[in-house]
């Protein structure tokens, strides 16, 4: 669905590249996460792939369309949810979606259906200038689905949303992905990437350092340990056991059988820890 090869981009048109020799492929139906801290080159890459930035060097194709000579028809197939909410503040939520739906030349979704989907039902006739930041963000997200995209670009889709709404948004993304929609997710939120992505790419200073699935990364970089807290003679004891050594496994089984288990955690690495290990920098 996306093929990128040797992509370079410089805002100052010199050797000061914001994106350097970026290459990757995203298969149809995949959720591909682009992880990196602010200024790493995530949005630049996404900008090039969505035609918002001119391709300078390298090759890229999205949904079968060559990005070098973008056909406007490509936009009938793609949806884009921006990190910064961008809706017309003098128009109502419904008018916003109706306006955008008319700009496409494919069958579009009912604005009210999308408004209800993102939890803005009842606010459809309110001007978005009166919306909170989170409401505007949800509407921006809803708008990205208006043309039933098969390729969906999501830039920080849950940023600034309360946990309940963020969970709903994640569910919507999963649901659409289950229907075959390919997702290109740009985020610095490791949790959403971990939950949603089939594969993630770590990008830093404009270069991709690693591409793999979250599961593989955890196996590769995580510690194979279990940490257990249990009650014994009125006291709380805390011990760590290897999940590989037979002796530790036997001991763990005995504690589970005989003692009262208070907490038990595997010591697998988080994506953020892996990111720091690989790049030497945090995601914030």
């Amino acid at each position: 669905m996306i093929e990128v090869e040797g992509l370079y981009y410089s805002y100052s048109n010199d050797d000061n590249f914001a994106v350097k020799d970026v290459s990757f492929k995203v298969a149809e139906g995949e959720i591909f996460g682009f992880l990196g801290p602010s200024g790493a080159g995530k949005s630049t890459t996404q900008g090039i792939l969505t035609g918002l930035l001119q391709l300078q060097k390298g090759n890229a194709s999205v949904a079968g369309y060559d990005i070098k000579n973008i056909s406007r028809k490509m936009f009938n197939k793609i949806g884009m949810s921006f990190e910064q909410s961008n809706v017309y503040s003098k128009m109502t939520a419904k008018e916003n979606l109706s306006f955008y739906s008319k700009l496409f030349d494919v069958e579009t979704r009912d604005p009210m259906e999308l408004i209800n989907l993102v939890g803005l039902g009842g606010k459809e006739n309110m001007r978005t200038g009166e919306f909170s930041k989170g409401m505007k963000h949800r509407l921006t997200f809803a708008r990205s689905m208006i043309n039933n995209p098969s390729m969906w670009f999501l830039d920080e889709p849950t940023t600034g949303l309360d946990p309940a709404i963020a969970a709903d948004i994640k569910d919507i993304i999963k649901e659409h992905n289950n229907k075959g929609v390919t997702v290109f997710l740009t985020t610095h939120n490791m949790y959403i990437a971990d939950e949603l992505c089939d594969r993630v790419a770590f990008i830093i200073n404009g270069e991709i350092r690693l591409i793999d699935s979250p599961k593989n990364l955890k196996l590769q970089y995580g510690k194979k340990l279990v940490e257990v807290e249990y009650g014994q003679d009125g006291n709380v004891k805390k011990e760590t056991f290897s999940t590989i050594l037979q002796e530790d496994k036997d001991l763990l089984n005995k504690i589970i059988a005989d003692k009262e288990i208070l907490t038990m955690h595997t010591k697998e690495a988080t994506l953020e820890e892996i990111f720091i290990k690989v790049t030497g920098r945090g995601l914030a």
Binding site: L52, F75, N76, N86, Y88, L103, D105, R143
Partner: peptide, 18 residues
């Protein structure tokens, strides 16, 4: 100016509108 303040030009640019 309205388009600029609402940052809506980029949203138009990802539709088939040239």
């Amino acid at each position: 100016l309205e388009e600029k303040m609402d940052q809506t030009v980029s949203a138009i640019n990802v539709t088939p509108t040239s």
